[in-house]
């Protein structure tokens, strides 16, 4: 493969989701990095500079809002879209996420197609 793959960083402490996401995204043609806590996620983001981040809100060590804010210190929404995936459905949580710099908010449970559609919207695959 000549082209470098688009990089997606998944920061999520739920290992089943991590596993299925990795399998699904890899299959869909992305390079996937996994982090299982906020701090690790932030470090990985700095190291790998992914094209898109899938970020959970409830995370060990450092919560999703803080991770989001920290990344926005360096990259803006266009440079590095952040998709929040959370079981939180309260309006306050959603608003807070947007304030922290999220591009969009996907509530769990979502399907394979839901997430792929959203990813495509933010980082269209070059033809």
């Amino acid at each position: 493969m000549e082209k470098t793959l688009q990089k997606i960083l998944v920061i999520e402490d739920e290992k089943n989701i991590n596993m299925t996401l990795k399998m699904m995204l890899t299959k869909a043609g992305y390079e996937v990095f996994l982090a299982t806590d906020g701090l690790e996620g932030l470090n990985l983001a700095m190291e790998t500079a992914p094209d898109l981040i899938l970020l959970d809100l409830i995370l060990p060590k450092m919560n999703g809002y803080l991770v989001c804010e920290a990344i926005r210190e360096k990259w803006d929404k266009k440079e590095m879209p952040i998709l929040i995936m959370s079981a939180k459905t309260q309006k306050e949580d959603i608003d807070k996420a947007y304030q922290a710099g999220a591009n969009t908010y996907i509530t769990k449970p979502f399907s394979k197609d839901d997430i792929l559609e959203q990813i495509k919207e933010y980082i269209p695959k070059e033809a």
């Binding site: 089943n16 299925t20 399998m23 299959k27 079981a87 769990k108 449970p109 394979k112």
Partner: peptide, 23 residues
Amino acid sequence: SHEFRTPLTSMGMSTGLLLDEVP
């Protein structure tokens, strides 16, 4: 129901992947 959400997500994606015969 909240606690159901996370497992349902991975379940859904898993069955989706299986049915897509990814594994």
